[in-house]
Structure formats: structure tokens, C-alpha cells
Amino acid sequence: MGYQGHFRVWRGSDEGGGLEDFTVEVNEGEVVLDVIHRLQATQTPDLAVRWNCKAGKCGSCSAEINGKPRLLCMTRMSVFAEDETVTVTPMRTFPVIRDLVTDVSYNYQKAREIPAFKPPAGVAPGEYRMQQVDVERSQEFRKCIECFLCNNTCHVIRDHEENKESFAGPRFLMRVAELEMHPLDQADRVQEAQSSHGLGLCNITKCCTEVCPEHIKITDNALIPMKERVADRRYDPIVWLGNKLFRNKS
């Protein structure tokens, strides 16, 4: 059975804007993106929203629903009471372009700053050989759909714009972890994670994990293991001594 739902949608651009109220039809089985599309079709033809797959796999429709960073296409209307006002706003951490659409180029910039996979010398593509158990950890991180909800919710940059320059955000620290754990990657990722990508700024409050629509254990499986690797390298004199005594000889 359908009903008339109350929506508050942020409308505006980088020059300003605000929340506007709408009453719009909601039908059984719909998600928030369906209702936003109905708003476009019936009341606000110029409402800007970025979307693509409607299946939680393209990462395009990231926004904030009742203050929580979520995908519009994966948020069922059935989780809200019929008399509840549903507030939809753009992601707060990134510059707004218009209405619900933000400029996420910060993320592409950070992606470019991470050196690519570095295979062993003399091993060409097609000659990579590795065990399944060795690549499983990295494969979890490949589930990422690049919705950037983790970077959006991370308070390091959400509440402190000035940290954007030095902090890659959970998405790209996870990329560093993916490469660091890759059995064939030869680059030194640990030093870079701390000095260039701002791992030390992360205080592991786990919001990135909470909002991940792919349920990747970003904090436990990527960020904390990277912090432990940094501790190995920088803060553990026993490991340092072991490396001096044994690794140099070999």
C-alpha cells in the first residue's frame, strides 16, 4: 500500500542552499532513490542526483539520509515510519556541485598519490604465481565500490578540512594495506602510509567500517594491521634489532 511520505531534501549549490520540504508518494518495496526519482518526475525536474546501477554496486548515489551516510539505492523506505520525515542531504565532506551531487575529486587525487603495484623484477604480467591464502586478505579490499562513504564519514577530514592535504582517508589507506599485503608487491608501503598518507591521523573510531555498504572490515583488517606494521618498523626496537642482526647478514 502506498502512502504520502514527508521528505526534506537539501537543494542548492556551492553558493548556498537549504532544506526544502516535499510530500511525495511512497510505494511498498521502494528505496529512497525511487522516491527521489519520483520527486524529479513529478515536482522538481531540476533536482540533481547522481545514480547509476540501483543495485549498490556502482557507488554513485552516496548521500546522507537522516544524517547517516548511506547509498540512496540501498536504503529501503520500510525502515522509516510512515509519518517520519526523511531528510536527504549531499555528503558533507566534499564540495557540493548541485543539490545531492558532490565533487568527489579529492578521492581521485588521493588515489593517484599511491604508487601502483610493483611486481618483482623480471616477472612479467601473466607470470604472477601466488597461493590463494596469500591473496585473500587483499581480495576483501577489492570489494570496495568506491562510494566514498568511508571518507565522507571520517571525522579527520569531515570535521577538519585542513587535514585533507595530508590524509588519504580510510578508502586509500585501505588501498595501501591491500598492496602492502599483496604477496608479490615489492614497494615499501609502511613508511609511506605514515609519512605521506596520514595513517597517524586515524584514531580508529571505526565509522568507516560502520558505513561501508560492502561490509568491509576496514578498521580491523586494513587500518589496524597497517598501524601494527608501522609499530613494527618505527616503535619496536626488538624488531629493529632483529632486522639489524639477521636481515642485513642475509
Binding site: 570535521d159 587535514n163 597517524g200 591521523l201 586515524c202 584514531n203 560502520e210 609499530a231 616503535y235
Partner: peptide, 30 residues
Amino acid sequence: MSPPACAVAEPHAKYTGETRFPLIAQNLHR
């Protein structure tokens, strides 16, 4: 309250995480 909850703004004007003393000592966990 850094942050008090996800997507709730923290009250601090500045944030340096675990990069400086004393919080850099969290690396001594092991």
C-alpha cells in the same frame, strides 16, 4: 568526543590524531 558518534561533528577546532605526544604513545600497545 572525537567524534561522539559517526557523522556527528566533534567540538574540537584542531585535530592531530595519534601523530604527536602523548597519543603517539598508543603505538606502545604491543
